[in-house]
Write a protein that binds this DNA or RNA. Structure first.
Lengths: 348, 348
DNA sequence: CTGAAAGCGCTTACAG
DNA sequence: CTGAAAGCGCTTACAG
C-alpha cells in the first residue's frame, strides 16, 4: 500500500506563487479584512488553488475559531420503528453540514438520561451546539430551556415551536392533516374517522386535528365527534383499537385519517379481519409515507413528512446559531402520495 | 443567554500546579516518552484534571497528529427500506467512535457515483478512512480495491470477505440460515421451502443457503431442490412470487425460510390470499428482525442481524486501521426471535 | 527527572 | 497594498 500523498496546504500555494500564506488564507477564506489585494494576485491565487486541488484542512480552521467541531444530536423516541424517521433526519443533517463544507461530528443520544448524565461533565464543553429532535414531552421543553439558558446553541425539531427563543424546524403537521382529509373528502367520503394523538388533555391542541377540521370546513361537512378516537400513541395497536371501538359503538364511517402509518396499517389489519374491505368500504390514509406503506396488506396512501429536508434545515440553523445569528423557525410543506388504500379503482 | 464558560485546557492545569504544560500533556495522554515523572506529580496532575473537569480538545490533538477528523461512510442500497439497517449500522459506528473518544465525522454517500465523483478531487485528501457497507456487487469490490490501493484506510461491511487485505465485519449470515432452518426442523417441519438470493450464478455461493443445508444435514433430512426459489432481490414481491411458483408446481411445504423480512412478509401475504393459514399450515421465518416483523399480518419470527454491533466493530476497525494496525475480520453471531409466524400455539 | 520550543494548518489584529 | 507574527490546544523530539 503506497504512502498517501500529502494534501495541499496554504503554504504550498504561497510558496508556489511567492506570496505570503496570510494573503492566500484571506483570499481563500473570502475574508480580506483591511486587505485590498490586486485582482491579478487574487486570481493567480485562486487559479493555483484549483490547480493544486487545495482543500482547506477542516480541523485547523475550527480550532482557530474556537470550535469543537461537534454538534450533538439528541433524538427522542421519534415515530415508530420502521418509519426511518431518525435515519432520514440524520441523513438530512449530514447533507446539510456537508453543503456548508462543515465538519461537524454527530453524536447520537437516545435518551435524555444518557444526554444529561454527560452534559455537565463533558457535553457542554465538548460540542458547539445541540439539535434536539423528537416527541415534545414537557420534560423535553425543560431540557431545551436548560440548554438554551446555559448558553449552548440549540435548535429544536419538535411539533409546535413552544420555546420562542429557540429556533425550531418541523414538517407542517397541520397541513398533513389537511391534505389527508381533503383527499378523502374530495374523493367522496362523507364520514371520516380520525385518530388524534396528543399528550395534551385537549384534542384541539393536535395540529393534525386542526388540519382535519379545516378540510371539513372547506368542504362544508361537519365531522362526527364520535368518530374522533383519542389514540395513546402512534403504534399499530392504536389503529386496531380505534377500529374496534368505532365498530363496537355501531358507528358508520367510509374513511380513516390516521396520524401515523402504523396506526393506519393497524386499522387496515383490523378492518380486514372483520371482513371490511379496503378501500372499497373504507378508505385509509396514513402519515409519514414510510416504507411500511408498501408492506401493508393494501398499499397505503400517506402524507410525506419530508424528514430529509427538515434535517438539512436543522443543520443550516444550528450552524447559523453557532455563528451567532438568530435563524427563524420553519415549517416544511408535506405532500400526498396516493396508493391503493384510498383509491376505488386499483392503481395502474 | 449567558456567555459560555471556557473549557479547561492543559495550560490551566499546568498553571494551577506550576508545572509545564508539556508534562501535563504527557500525563494526560499516557504517553510519557523518555519522561519519568515522579508519581506524586503524576497523581497531582490527574487529581487536578478531574477537579477542573478537563476534557482534551478533540480538534487540537487530531490536527497535531495529522488527522482530518473525518471518516467517510459509503452505504450502498443495503437491505430494503423499513429494515433500518443503515440506521442501526450508523448508530453502531457512531457509538464506537464515541467510545474511543474520537471525533470522527461521518459522511454518508448513497451511491458509488456520488462517492467517486468527489473521491479524487476531495475525499481522498479530506478524510482519514472509509467504511464501505452494502451489497457486494463486483463494482463494489473494484471500488474497495481502488481505495485500498490508494493508501486510504478502508474497512468493509460486506457479505463474504472477498478482499483478504481489507478487514471486513458482517453478521454471520450462514449462521442466520442455520438458526432459522434449525428452528423450523426442530419444531417438526419436514418440507421447508427456501428463497436463495444471490447475485452469483450458483446458489451454493449463498451463505444463508449453506446454513439452510447444514441444518438439514444435522437433522438428517434432505431438502427438496424444487423448493429452492432463486429470488432476484430481497423485496416483498420475491416472497409473493416464490409462493405462487411453489403452489403452481403443486409442491407441498410446511415451512418457509426467507432471506429477508420483506420476502417473508410477501410470502405471508400471498399465502393468506390463497387461504393458507400461517403458522397453522405453513410456518415462516424472516431475516433481520426488523420493525416490519410486527407490521406483518402474522407477527414474524426472524433472525437478528446485529447491525448496531457490526457498526461498533466497524468503528473500532477503521480506527485501528488509521492508527496503522491490521485489525482482523469479524463475523457477528445472530440469534433467533420467535414470534407467532413459526409457533403453533399462539404466543402469550 | 522536567521543560522550552517547534510545529500541525489555519485566522486575524496589527505593523509596515 | 501586503506580510510577519501571535495564537487556537495540543504532541513530541530534543536539550538541559
Amino acid at each position: 500500500m503506497p504512502p498517501r500523498e500529502r494534501a495541499t496546504s496554504l503554504k504550498d500555494i504561497a510558496q508556489a506563487l511567492d506570496v505570503s500564506y496570510s494573503l492566500v488564507s484571506k483570499v481563500m477564506g473570502g475574508n480580506m479584512g483591511n486587505t485590498r489585494a490586486r485582482p491579478e494576485v487574487v486570481q493567480a491565487i485562486q487559479a493555483k488553488a484549483r490547480e493544486m486541488n487545495y482543500q482547506p484542512h477542516p480541523l485547523a480552521g475550527a480550532l482557530k475559531r474556537g470550535r469543537k467541531g461537534a454538534v450533538g444530536v439528541l433524538i427522542h423516541a421519534m415515530g415508530e420503528e420502521g418509519t426511518e424517521i431518525a435515519s432520514n433526519l440524520l441523513r438530512g443533517i449530514s447533507a446539510g453540514f456537508d453543503e456548508h463544507r462543515l465538519r461537524l461530528w454527530l453524536r447520537f443520544f437516545e435518551s435524555d438520561d444518557e444526554f444529561l448524565e454527560h452534559f455537565d461533565k463533558r457535553a457542554r464543553y465538548d460540542m458547539d451546539g445541540v439539535i434536539v429532535a423528537g416527541i415534545a414531552h414537557p420534560a423535553t421543553f425543560e431540557l431545551i430551556k436548560k440548554l438554551h439558558a446555559s448558553g449552548l446553541p440549540v435548535v429544536s425539531v419538535l411539533e409546535g415551536s413552544v420555546i420562542p427563543e429557540v429556533a425550531n424546524v418541523m414538517p407542517d403537521v397541520q397541513h398533513q392533516g389537511y391534505l389527508a382529509t381533503d383527499h378523502l373528502l374530495a374523493s367522496g367520503c362523507k364520514r371520516i374517522a380520525h385518530l388524534v394523538t396528543t399528550s395534551a388533555a385537549d384534542p384541539e391542541t393536535s395540529r393534525r386535528y386542526r388540519g382535519f377540521l379545516a378540510a371539513h370546513t372547506r368542504h362544508g361537512i361537519s365531522p362526527d365527534p364520535d368518530l374522533i378516537f383519542r389514540a395513546p400513541n402512534y403504534k399499530l395497536s392504536s389503529g386496531e383499537e380505534a377500529v374496534r371501538q368505532w365498530l363496537a359503538q355501531g358507528l358508520q364511517f367510509d374513511g380513516i385519517v390516521a396520524q401515523s402509518d402504523h396506526q393506519a396499517i393497524g386499522a387496515i389489519h383490523e378492518l380486514l379481519r372483520r371482513g371490511i374491505r379496503v378501500p372499497d368500504a373504507v378508505r385509509v390514509v396514513g402519515v409519514d409515507d414510510s416504507p411500511l406503506c408498501l408492506a401493508s396488506p393494501v398499499p397505503l396512501t400517506s402524507v410525506t413528512a419530508e424528514w430529509v429536508t427538515v434535517g438539512r434545515h436543522a443543520a443550516d440553523m444550528i450552524t447559523a446559531e453557532i455563528d451567532g445569528e438568530r435563524p427563524a423557525s420553519l415549517m416544511i410543506a408535506p405532500h400526498l402520495v396516493v396508493r391503493r388504500s384510498s383509491t376505488l379503482q386499483p392503481q395502474p
